[in-house]
Amino acid sequence: MKKENKFKLSLQAILTDLLFWIYIFGCVSFLINHWFEKPIPSSFVVIFGVAVGLISFILGLSVARKVFLPTIRTAKKWYKSFWGWSVFLILLITFVVGWNLVEVDLYKLFTKFQNAGGIMSGIFNPNMDILIICLTALAETIYLALLATVFAIPLAFILSFFAARNLMPRTFLGNTVYIIVRTIATVFRSIEAIVWAIIFSVWVGIGPFAGMLALMIHSIASLTKLYSEQIENIDPGPVEAIKATGASTLQIWIFGVVPQIISPYLAFTIYRWDINVRMATIVGFVGGGGIGLLLLQQQQLLRWQNVGIIIWLIAAVVWIMDMVSAKVREKLQEM
């Protein structure tokens, strides 16, 4: 092993051990505070964590030793070793802390069913009188999902070429374009559509247009990623062959790349529309319009029979979309 490599590994190991034990003592102090209402200063947590971490590391028994620098002393069955019991402890304590943080209460779950009686009876006695209003809102949702998908396609299609490693030359310009497009797509995708909906509902006002914009941004980012991965998986042979005929770069893309990706692109796009219809409901909740907004309003008014019909309609649409898109994608695979 190289010297600097060993140094780096040791550093990683020590840090891991310290964080490992600081976390355990942090959990312990949370539980003590939670159960006995005795706050423990964080300096205590750090001091105990660092102490136990360091000692176990120096003795060569710790978890990080096992992971980064395995020796004879750590090569035992887990239940016969210190690291084994440390891992057991951290898993156990994480579960206990999680249980308390989430306020898991099985008593409520099994005894307070009657609280949901209103919504349950609403679901089984949906109010058919507002069917027309609901269908209008539902149409809004489906069409906003459709438009979001349609608007996203051309942009994502073009961007995907610049986000494909195998198409971007490994020059300064090529790398820069690739990294910029990739980064923007990743950042925009990691921001949930619901957050975009909040932003756009302030920007253009509450309504389906805001929802459409939110879904569009999210769709562009995620289709760019899916599309470009598809390009990276194409057979390079035809591209090479087209290049050898003396074709220009654009001709190489159109004749060597596009025919290979067109049917997976269609499949992804239809899948995306399917996702967008589902997300459009959620986006509606925060101001994106459509059936989601209607559901929110009726729920706040405690009109459970109206909520009932809306839930049935959403379920039906999601179910139908799911089936249709699965069938279409199946057909595309055969092409």
Partner: peptide, 11 residues
């Protein structure tokens, strides 16, 4: 150029 794997666009 002719290639071992033919390198046609299959679809």
């Amino acid at each position: 150029m002719i290639f071992q794997q033919f390198n046609l666009i299959k679809n």
